[in-house]
Nucleic acid binder design. Structure first.
Length: 587
DNA sequence: TTTAGGG
DNA sequence: CCCTAAA
């Protein structure tokens, strides 16, 4: 069942529209704060009934799947990162057709979450958004908008449980999980609530609410307060646990002399899921399933190609929060990894450099959205990454430049010295500091395991290779390899000449060759300009070697660098270059 | 997986 | 040296 009509195709732009203008027109009360919190309460409290109806058998994903009411593959496949192309109409019709007798309205409502009917939906939307918006100060609401709220909802509520599966496009599994596993937990947890919260008076709950969300509330409904507090608490757990940024066994809140603890199972176990689900509106099942797919990357940090990025930067006090959706270049994996372990706590604003101070509660709520913070490509030299507090810092800034390589000194020309380059073992005595155990003298094998020793000295999980200077022997081997195999056959050269060296990859060889070529060319330039005062820039590599490089480059010209070569020096008397095309000397 | 090329 | 695209 793969009827993807144009009507059901919702682009992100449309969603944005729907969530700003139209949606707010439909029901502004959803975004209201204190005075209308009652609405939130109402919606919130209504949910269980609705859920029971839905989940009591009427709406069963498993059944749907098995009965082929819609094709799960198509369903998941259609929901791509930037576009939601799911065939909601088809789903909708099937669902309603099937279950109309029982709770047609509820189904209707539920499906509107995902379908485009959401635009004119008179019925209320699931309370997840309402809830979160409701829990925020009013001044943020308009800025945040609906889409970001979605993210928060998704990120906070559901991801932890499913994160391990995100990379698999196995919607069937997820869906069946949803119908079978998470729902019972959800129901029970919801009804049980926290005993600690039960004991608390309304005043204490108010206090707790204030400390958690940073504002007062006029609502005196205990249940409502408890729900909100639970939500906040589970946010804590979620952040600490589900996102795996930091592992903590318990998350505790000091509330009016009482301490509410939430234990969190490590590594996103199912228990987390139950906690997560406490406040999830079950009618969101369809809706946020879709959304979740869309923002899957938020949780795992496993960046998959280019997906919708939630660009958020919360400013001091949270008086404004910019939420933009951008399509940006994905940051290098290393960048992310280094970000994760960076201890820096500073986050610079785009235009300034004020340190960001989050309010606790807001930070928790927002940070999930900012979890996958990306930087614009041309953003300057200091992209920023806002992370949640689990990092011990609101934001971290990772310099774009390469990490400073401590303790390594360039080998400079000493490796070549006046000696010929055959004395590779003598070369660059400072090189083996972290690489080659030169005691093992043999010219080829020295490279064999140096890498291992280096890895132990590296920062954990930083896959950045330290700069390893090329030794004269390596250069010679490279040249030899090029001589034999030709330029471009780096893998072969690697196999032939560097088989024992785990630290030089074919790409390295390629890069080195490119550098050599440049060096040789630069040398030519310098030479031609007979500026005696000019120090030989390329003194790292003996001229003879560069000559050889040039020779080879004429023999095996790079298409691209062809314009370099030959030029002067009568192109040597290198006999082998019989068939080389001597490019006429430019200028 | 390898290669080329940009950064 | 890293990253990505293309093959």
């Amino acid at each position: 069942m793969n009827i993807t009509s144009k009507d059901s195709l919702i682009t992100s732009d449309e969603i944005a529209n729907m969530f700003t203008s139209k949606f707010s027109e439909v029901d502004l009360s959803l975004f209201a704060a204190s005075e209308q919190e009652a609405i939130g309460v109402e919606h919130f409290l209504v949910e269980p009934k609705c859920n029971q109806n839905l989940l009591g058998g009427t709406f069963d994903f498993e059944a749907f799947h098995s009965q082929k009411f819609f094709d799960v593959e198509d369903f998941s496949g259609a929901i791509e990162y930037d576009e939601i192309k799911a065939d909601f109409n088809a789903v909708h019709s099937n669902l309603t057709r099937e279950a109309q007798e029982e709770t047609p309205e509820l189904l209707e409502e539920m499906l509107q979450v995902a379908g485009d009917e959401v635009l004119d939906g008179k019925t209320r939307l699931p309370t997840c958004e309402e809830f979160i918006l409701d829990a925020k100060p009013a001044d943020e609401v308009t800025i945040l908008g609906h889409g970001s709220c979605k993210v928060s909802c998704v990120g906070n509520v559901g991801l932890g449980r499913y994160s391990p599966d995100f990379h698999e496009r196995d919607s069937a599994a997820e869906i069946s999980n949803m119908s079978s596993a998470s729902v019972p937990a959800l129901e029970s947890t919801y009804n049980q609530n926290s005993p600690v919260l039960d004991e608390m008076t309304v005043q204490e709950l108010h206090e707790a609410f204030k400390s958690m969300f940073g504002r007062e509330t006029s609502v005196t409904d205990k249940q409502w307060l408890k729900c909100h507090l639970l939500f906040g608490l589970q946010n804590q757990v979620q952040l600490d646990n589900g996102l795996n940024l930091i592992k903590r066994d318990t998350t505790s809140y000091k509330i009016g002399g009482k301490t509410v603890c939430f234990s969190s199972c490590d590594s996103s176990g199912s228990a987390t899921g139950s906690i997560n689900s406490v406040l999830v509106d079950k009618t969101m099942a369809v809706g946020w399933h879709v959304e979740r797919k869309r923002f899957a990357g938020l949780d795992t940090l496993k960046t998959s190609s280019e997906d919708s990025k939630i660009d958020l930067c919360s400013l001091d006090g949270g008086d404004e929060a910019l939420v933009t959706q951008k399509r940006l270049r994905k940051p290098p994996k290393r960048y992310i990894e280094e970000s994760m372990e960076d201890k820096s706590r500073y986050c610079k604003r785009k235009n300034g450099d004020c340190e960001v101070v989050y309010k606790e509660s807001r930070e928790k709520l927002l940070s999930v959205r900012s979890h996958k913070r990306l930087y614009p490509k041309g953003f300057g030299a200091a992209p920023m990454v806002c992370q949640d507090k689990s990092f011990k810092g609101s934001c971290i800034q990772v310099p774009f430049g390469l990490p400073v390589e401590e303790g390594h000194t360039e080998t400079d020309s000493s490796s070549w010295n006046s000696e010929d380059f055959k004395d590779d073992r003598l070369s660059s005595p400072n090189e083996e500091v972290d690489t080659e155990p030169h005691s093992a003298r043999s010219q080829d094998e020295i490279c064999g395991d140096g890498f291992i020793t280096r890895s132990s000295t590296q920062k954990v999980s930083s896959h950045r290779k330290h700069h390893i200077s090329w030794t004269s022997s390596e250069v010679m081997k490279l040249i030899e390899g090029v001589t034999r195999c030709g330029v471009g056959r780096w893998a072969e050269i690697k196999r032939l000449m560097f088989s024992s060296s785990s630290r030089r990859t074919p790409v390295d060889l390629k890069d080195k060759w490119r550098n050599l070529l440049r060096a040789s060319y630069a040398q030519l330039q310098c030479k031609r300009k007979v500026k005696q005062g000019q120090k030989q820039v390329s003194n790292q590599v003996p001229e003879s070697v560069l000559w050889r490089v040039r020779e080879l480059s004429t023999t095996y010209p790079y298409q691209r660098e062809r314009k370099f070569k030959v030029s002067c020096t009568d192109s040597s008397n290198f006999s082998a270059s019989t068939n080389n095309i001597l490019v006429p000397l430019s200028t």
